[in-house]
Design a protein around this nucleic acid. Structure first.
Lengths: 364, 364
DNA sequence: CATCATACTGTAAACGTTTACGGGGAACGG
DNA sequence: CCGTTCCCCGTAAACGTTTACAGTATGATG
């Protein structure tokens, strides 16, 4: 009992025809006489034959498979983009190869391994080095970067972190009168977080304020509350507001703060990023920025598919807008929600900013 | 520029040897003269050759790939078992194929498609029908069921839902004096939830109480608060306690309850399942049952790997213990936490209950 | 010098498909 | 009866590997 079903040859023998004929009826192409077709169909049924993926892939030079490499699956953000990517992949009748780089340093080898198993790869921000990326594209492998600043020659879909981070910071400064803000997150190797930090700094400049020199470093996890607290406690006094790089961290921080007797938002405002499901449910409903997570995954898959099917789409970069959602953790009253929040349903894709390829681009 | 790198033939030509020799040095097996090896190595480097996965897989009858089919990635539970499964798979230098069945009815075809792309498949509970499962095993494909009641002939790893659900219900009844309990969850097609419901009923019987006839039906999501509320409001009066099938639902319910002015746990006790990261952070810290999610994924991968590598492990069923963690949402005081909680670190695997294969089993 | 073991390398078949090409009939017009 | 056309189907090569087997050269041994 080998892990293989019947082969073309066995079916052919069983039906009394040649393998070419079996292949034809199996694929439903070319003309084959009705009676022959029936015989073959019967044989296929009887042996319950299924064409070997390997055989097909080898000659077709096509794997019918997409790959996605992510740092992991922890937290709603990654899970959501992977899931939406998977849905789109499935809809195109393709399989999905998932590679989590986690902390492993040996990721390079694994990624190279994906190169000839998939017809295209989506790479989430910060997972692999530019050098390797170029090596992959030079193999002729379609790539798309997700949530990472554009690298010349590689299509990208990402989110506009700048605009809404600034809007958020301005809200805290202008509407709430805060002067001393801190930023919490793990910048290193995380393109999104880096942009948010930079926008945070920039927003200070625009408001004529001096930004902090450094972000408060901690992993993007609910468990980081204590770490943040330690860094907060080391200061002379608490900042007026704490801008967190994502919601989970914000929620964790709010919890530790509460346990330490400091009230949110009365003593300190705390904001998040992502608008995960928990954000509106937590003790002090989170003011945050909603990013179109599922749209990210979907778009990445579509761009990949287009590229594979030779559409040679002209989109070089797709930048999706985010949305500021004001709740209570910034200090706004509960009633203000609807007034401030820009809207509740998905963002119209039409508002996405796309960058098209320069005509003089050197692709023949 | 075809999506393929150099082949054995090109390397062979470049190095002035035969493809067999190249294959040998590429794999690092058999004897080859030092000088020849060097020439070949140079050629490999120069053309940066990598052996085609397809070619290898075809002749080796081995894909170096594991598959996992899950209902999706929504929520920490699924993400965690998939992630831990992925980690274990990676550690074994294998690739991971991810199939999310979501709501698609056409999942069968997709699963069959996985059959010859992977060397083994992990199937999460409730995703595919027993009939299809048997079809897969009859192909000689190693399978392992995750979180699903055992099906004869297919190894399973699951969690003991019964014991701790009963302990939880007894706690509510005996320690808190509750008499009127309700259960919320989506039973249909969810083996874990079904077991929890059954244990809930059974615990009532054991306490001499009449259980409710039906669970309150709603999806396992934070958004189900409103649905549960509607069903609760349709009753004469609120139950004393609401046992939810997972944490996310419990958290959502607590939030809606709070918004409706009913206090947890004063007016009603609410409990969850899973002990997700958010559980301890939420406004009324959740009393819940912790299940060894990561252990589930890891064990599934290991069993699969053993089976593939011909270890022909004798484990037919692996049942992992859960852990009752008492917090405040059941009505216990915050101080009672440590007294009641059974322990905070991972459960010793040694306490897992395993069922071994009968010697008279008909596998040759 | 014949024989033989040893070390190295090449030839060719196999894995399971797809598909270019060509051949054999049948139908049909002349 | 021959030539042409069209439909149907089979042969064989190709995709990129691994590996059984055989071959060559070398040196040792009788």
């Amino acid at each position: 009992m080998t892990k293989q079903g019947a082969t073309l040859y066995e079916v052919a023998e069983h039906a009394g025809v040649s393998i070419a004929t079996v292949s034809r009826v199996a694929r439903g192409v070319d003309q084959v006489a009705p009676e022959t077709r029936r015989k073959v169909l019967d044989a296929i049924q009887e042996l319950n034959y299924r064409a070997s993926h390997l055989g097909r892939a080898l000659v077709n030079r096509r794997n019918d498979t997409l790959g996605i490499v992510t740092p992991g699956l922890s937290g709603p953000y990654f899970a959501d983009v992977v899931q939406s990517f998977a849905e789109e992949t499935l809809a195109a009748r393709m399989s999905l190869l998932l590679l989590g780089t986690h902390l492993l340093g040996e990721a390079d080898e694994q990624v190279l391994g994906l190169a000839d198993r998939g017809d295209g790869l989506a790479i989430m921000g910060g997972t692999i080095q530019p050098e390797l990326l170029h090596r992959l594209t030079s193999l002729g492998l379609p790539l798309v970067l997700v949530s990472q600043a554009r690298i010349e020659g590689i299509p990208t879909v990402r989110v506009d972190n700048i605009t809404k981070t600034k809007a958020l910071v301005h809200h805290l400064i202008a509407d709430h009168g805060h002067r001393d803000l801190a930023f919490a997150g793990w910048i290193h190797g995380n393109p999104d977080a880096t942009e948010r930090w930079q926008a945070f700094v920039e927003a200070h400049r625009e408001a004529g304020l001096e930004p902090p020199a450094e972000p408060l470093h901690a992993p993007f996890s609910t468990n980081s509350g204590a770490e943040i607290w330690a860094q907060l406690a080391a200061r002379d006094r608490l900042p007026d507001a704490l801008v967190c790089g994502n919601d989970e961290m914000a929620i964790g921080v709010i919890d530790t703060l509460k346990a330490r007797g400091v009230h949110v938002p009365e003593d300190i405002a705390v904001t998040g990023w992502d608008d995960i499901a928990m954000a509106r449910v937590v003790s002090s409903p989170l003011t945050t920025v909603r990013q179109p997570t599922r749209e990210l995954g979907r778009s990445a898959a579509r761009m990949l598919l287009d590229s594979i099917n030779g559409q040679s789409s002209t989109i070089d970069e797709l930048v999706l807008p985010c949305e500021l959602v004001i709740r209570e953790s910034c200090g706004c009253p509960a009633a203000a929600r609807d007034a401030y929040t820009e809207g509740h349903d998905g963002l119209p894709a039409a508002t996405a900013r796309t960058v098209h390829r320069k005509e003089t681009h050197d692709d023949e």
